[in-house]
Every structure is written in structure tokens, then in C-alpha cells.
Design a protein around this nucleic acid. Structure first.
Lengths: 356, 356
DNA sequence: GTTGGCAAGTAACGCGAGTTACCTTCAGCG
DNA sequence: CGCTGAAGGTAACTCGCGTTACTTGCCAAC
């Protein structure tokens, strides 16, 4: 009877895939032995000979472990969930890249779930909650939330059921660990660079002054100037819409406001898109970059910065590193290790190109 | 005995999460009944009253199904795997977005695995094979392969074990269904637009002439010209490096080659980056866009096209739609439906902005 | 009053693994 | 000869859930 079922089983196997039992049978051992070998358990006593027989059987049958079954039995999934609006607004894709690569290195799987672009005030909790819920159904061991731009967010209630780390955003109320760019350091680095190039009269094209990026970068600029014994002239700070057009207009204002000798010799644009507009304003006036006006940007949007003529010197947002660090932090959390700081700042490095 | 284990179980439950058995117990029914209700099986006879009791218990306990266990028992995972180098080189992120959104709509989960940027000849099979293997271990029901740019690829052997669809690339040897942009149609649309604007002498800034994108777009341009009784002047086609610099140089060549009256009045740039360089070449010569020279691009790289001044009219690569269509095709395949065509072409729509 | 049938539900098995407790054998030693 | 202990395994339970087959009670029909 048992014999007659074997061929049936073999047929079924072809459909269902090879299981550990098949391997065991092929190797002439018990399924337990196979399990021991595959997970190479230290204190299990398996002779070298049978270990080889089992490994051969694995090869021969093309056995492929069933991750789901393994997760079920072992009560650990090796999955992290990443909820992000980046899928929707791919400004900061590199966060995903960094997280994905790091997860891959750690032999973990990243389940990515989309979230709506959430506004700072009342996030569209619908999709976000659903995404979180779905991820928890997959029994992820931890959650990551990533935002396209640095800001405060509200995470769904259920996120608190597992270790959670925020990337490029921070928890408005609670106490979740977060990874954010060191905007202030970036601002400092940018203005320092201009100072080093001999500029002392520096115009700033600002973002919406209320967002964390603007606050931090401007503060950094102030610090750098202070380090050189200078102050930030409020008249030289113009806020604009965070687009090329906004940058164009702001640059026009700054450039046209003064007679030539009082005109700033450098512009610190708080993002690259605005720098792109500033380029046009400068060129229109017959001025050269960086000869007459040096320009430094922020964000390092490759497609802009690397292709503008001259190429734009800018400060990079460390998306990839933040993604990786997020996964590392989560790994530490799920392993029960204590996290050093609630908020980790990641350096924004200067990228030298040709506009300063 | 059974009673005394209950509190232990309850304690364990707190750690492990609520299971269907807990729900059943809370509702005073069998686990089977709960299963029937949750999957609302048609032909199962459950009274309205107990159905409500069970749903209440689900709410009360905050029960959350275990996707892995469900997959194990039902032998279907509702998971698709997406192997892509886009994670590595995020040029075509919108493919992921389109696929992700569509999968979400279909109540399926997309597992995204990274692949190295593969060159056309010998793809780095290492990571790709590993990624595929990992996805199969997760028992995905189907696989998607997405490339950053339209080209031929080799998929790992094991991909043939489940339904597989290629997005933005095609199978060099085998016969896998694929979704690719209609490059030819896009070329036609672009040149048609220029013809409609009254241009008859059109310069073309070409990509590497061997890649599918160049072949198709150029062929489309030829068709459009033929439709107007014109021919493509080979002298007006200049190939350049696919960058802003390459576009700049190619544009210089074309613009400087002829006396003003013979100069082309429009440029068809086969990608937006090259158009960006062409802009500079044109502006440097004191010419205006589109007054003196009209420019049309291809790819619709938002960060470039929407921020150039004037904004660039271009033909969009339908990344998002390709992603969605990929998932739909895969859904049809896994459902056993026959696929209409081996290769599906997706329209490349014209995006009118201000450069024509 | 038997039969039959349907509504309402349950026991029990299987999915593919991890894991614990137990069982042989055989060598070595007193 | 009998005992001990390690090497080399295995049977059986568990994880959370889908699913099939079977039971029970009740009412209508013959």
C-alpha cells in the first residue's frame, strides 16, 4: 500500500514542489535528519557520511525550502516591512535602494507597501493603515516608515506592535527611533564651501521657511557665517516656491535688488530645482557661473545637478545611507539590542562639481 | 486538564498573537466555523447569528490572519515576485509604482528583489539568480522582470518554473511574454508634432544606434516624414552620448553645419537629457526656443522636462502603465488564461509643453 | 412512524517545516 | 558480564490555517 502511493506522491511532487520529506526519502534518512543538516545545528549528531548523502539528495532533487512553512514553524519570518509614499512620489528612491541592499546583506526580505503621499497635518490614514495591516498579516518582524521629504508624521497605531524605525521623518508625538538627514550640518558645509571660495556676500534662496529642511539648512548657514565672523543679512534671504520657476523668481529678486558692487557673489539655493531656475536668471543677465556668481544647491538630484551646465555643486541628501541605517537600526531593535539615540543624524556630504 | 492549560495558552497568545482558535473559543464555536466565516464560503451553512458572534470575536480580540499559514494551507500565496535592477538604477521607478499599485488593487503582494544593473551581453547572473531563487523560496505565484531601459535580457533558468512576464525588456532566446514601449509609435508621434507645427527640416539627435529605443524611434520618425512626403536626411541625424553633454555636442554639430537658411528649424532629441544639452547649444547661439528652433524630447524625465525653461515637450515612456500591465498579464497567466500576444506594445503619449 | 433532507456545525487531516524527547547501537571500562 | 555514555538517529508534536467528510437535530412528507 505504502509502495503504491509512492508514484502518486512523485506525481504530486512535480506539481507541489519538492519537500523535505522527499529529500529524506531520497537520502534514506528521516526528515528530522534533513532538517538538522539544512540548519546545520551544532549539537545535532549527524555523521559526515549521511550529511553528504543528504546534501547530495538536496542537489539531486533541486530541493528549495519553503520560506512560509519555515516561518510558521520557527516563528520568525526574516521579513521587514517598509511603508512608504516613495513608491508614489519617487523623489527619494534611494532610500528604498539603501534599505533593500542592506536587507539583502542581512539575509532579510523587505516587503514594500505603498502609502499615499501624506501631508504634514492629516495624513491620508486610509492606505497607510491598510498597508501596515497587510504587512503585519505577513508577520513582518519590524516596520520601517520612509517619507519623501524630511517631516513629522503620524504612524498608524498598529505599528507599535512591532519594532519600528522612521526614515527621513520623525514621530510627531511618540518616541519612535528615527533616521534623518543632518540638515544643519549640510547648510554649514554648503556655506563653508562658499566662504572658502572667497565669497562673503551670499544670497540664500529659501524654501518654505517652516519645513524642517529649511529651518535646519538656514541654521547651518548662519553657523558657518558666524564662524567667519559674518552675519546672515535677512535681506539676502528670499523664499520661493520649491521649483525651478520659484528659484528663477527668487534669483531675479536678489540679483536685481542691488547695484553691481553690492550684489551677492554667490547663491545658496536650498534645493537643486531652485538652483536650476537660478541658473537661468543668472545666464539671462549675461553673468557667468561660477565666474560672476557661484551657485551651490542642496539635495543632489542627479538628473539636475549632474546635467546642468556647468554641473552643479551641491550638498547630497544621504538617502541611501539613511535607508541602510534604518534597516540596521531595525535589525538591532529586533535583536533586542538597545538603540543608542532616538534620533540619528546622517551627514549630508558636499559634492564638488563646477558651479563654485 | 484542558481547563488548566487555558490560562497558559492565553499567556502564550499574548506573545504569539491571536489565532483562529482563540477567536473560535471566544465565540464559542469551532475553528472551522471561524474559517468559514472569514473566507465567507458560499455553500457553508452558518447562521447569521453565529456569523455575527464570530465577527464580534474577531473585532474584540483584534485577530489578524497569518498570511504565511494561510498560504501554506491553501497552496496559494497571492504573491508576485519582481526582480529588477531599477532598485539599483532608479531611472524607471514608475514601473515599480505601476506594478505595485496594480498588485495592491488585485489584493496581491509584490515582493521586490534587487538585481544588478545587467549589461546587454553578459548579465551579472549572480545576484539575479539569487534573487530569483529567494523569490521562489517565498513561493511566489509568478515572476516579473523589469529593466531600466528597453533591451534584450536573459532570465535565470529557474524563472521558467512559474509564469513569468518581462517589463521594458524582452527575452533574447525564449518565448516569455513581454511588455515594451511602442518606440516606433513614439517616434512617429514626436515627428508628427513637429510637422504639424510647420517644420519640415528636422534634425535628429540620436542615441547609440544599436539599442532598440534608437532603432524604433528613428523608424517612427521616418514613417512620420514619409507620411508627409518627406525623407529623413541622413546628414541631419547625429549620434551622441546619451547625456546632456552628448546632446550639447550633437546639437552644436547640427546647428553649425549649415548657413542659417538651411539650418533645421526643429530638433528631435531621442532622450530628454540630450535635449537638455541641446537647449544650451541653442541658447548659446542666441537662438530662442521654440521661436527659432523647436525642440522635442523623449522619455519624459520629469525632473528635466518639467523644469527646463521653456518646459520641454516630449514623448513619455509609459513606465507606470507597463508596470500595471505586467501585473495584469501575470494575473491572467497565473489564472490560466491565455495571453493574446507574446509582446505587448504600450503607447508612448506626447506631452505638450512649451518647446514646440 | 419511518424516511429523507436540509440547516448548522464539527472532528480530523494535511500543508512544509522546526523542535523536543526518546530510542538504538556499540565501544570502553570496571 | 553488566553498566555507562556518547554517537547517530527517529517518532511525534507544533506552528496557524484550509478543507473534506461526517454528525446532529429538526421538520416535512409519505
Amino acid at each position: 500500500m505504502a509502495k503504491t502511493t509512492t508514484p502518486q506522491k512523485a506525481a504530486a511532487v512535480r506539481q507541489r514542489g519538492v519537500t523535505m520529506s522527499d529529500v529524506a526519502q531520497h537520502a534514506g534518512v528521516s526528515r528530522t535528519a534533513v532538517s538538522f543538516v539544512l540548519n546545520n545545528r551544532e549539537n545535532a549528531s549527524i555523521s559526515e557520511e549521511t550529511r553528504i548523502r543528504i546534501n547530495d539528495a538536496v542537489q539531486a532533487l533541486g530541493y528549495r525550502p519553503n520560506a512560509g512553512a519555515r516561518a510558521l514553524a520557527s516563528q520568525r519570518s526574516d521579513w521587514y516591512g517598509l511603508v512608504t509614499e516613495i513608491v508614489t512620489a519617487p523623489f527619494a528612491v534611494d532610500i528604498i535602494k539603501g534599505a533593500q541592499d542592506q536587507a539583502w546583506l542581512d539575509h532579510r526580505f523587505l516587503l514594500i507597501a505603498p502609502s499615499d503621499q501624506a501631508d504634514a497635518v492629516g495624513p491620508n490614514q486610509g492606505l497607510e493603515d491598510a498597508a501596515t495591516e497587510k504587512l503585519l498579516e505577513q508577520r513582518v518582524e519590524g516596520l520601517l516608515y520612509a517619507a519623501t521629504y524630511h517631516r513629522g508624521v503620524h504612524v498608524p497605531e498598529s505599528a507599535h506592535e512591532v519594532p519600528t524605525v522612521l526614515i527621513n521623518c520623525f514621530d510627531a508625538d511618540g518616541k519612535l527611533p528615527s533616521i534623518v538627514p543632518d540638515e544643519r550640518g549640510g547648510g554649514r558645509v554648503a556655506v563653508d564651501r562658499l566662504l572658502r571660495a572667497g565669497h562673503s556676500r551670499i544670497g540664500v534662496i529659501n524654501l518654505d521657511p517652516h519645513i524642517p529642511a529649511a529651518v535646519g539648512r538656514l541654521e547651518g548657514a548662519r553657523e558657518a557665517l558666524a564662524g567667519a565672523g559674518l552675519e546672515l543679512d535677512p535681506e539676502l534671504v528670499v523664499s520661493g516656491h520649491a521649483t525651478a520657476d520659484g528659484g528663477y523668481e527668487a534669483a531675479c529678486q536678489i540679483l536685481d535688488r542691488y547695484p553691481q558692487q553690492d550684489r551677492p557673489t554667490a547663491l545658496f539655493c536650498l534645493n537643486d530645482r531652485m538652483a536650476m531656475g537660478a541658473y537661468d536668471a543668472i545666464k539671462e543677465r549675461g553673468l557667468t557661473i561660477p565666474g560672476d556668481i557661484a551657485v551651490i544647491g542642496f539635495d543632489n538630484q542627479e538628473l539636475i545637478a549632474a546635467y546642468l551646465r556647468p554641473k552643479l555643486t551641491t550638498v547630497a541628501l544621504p538617502f541611501e545611507k539613511m535607508g541602510a541605517l534604518g534597516v540596521q537600526t531595525l535589525a538591532a531593535l529586533t535583536a533586542g539590542q538597545p538603540i543608542t539615540a532616538d534620533q540619528q543624524l546622517v551627514d549630508c556630504p558636499l559634492l564638488e562639481r563646477s558651479s563654485v
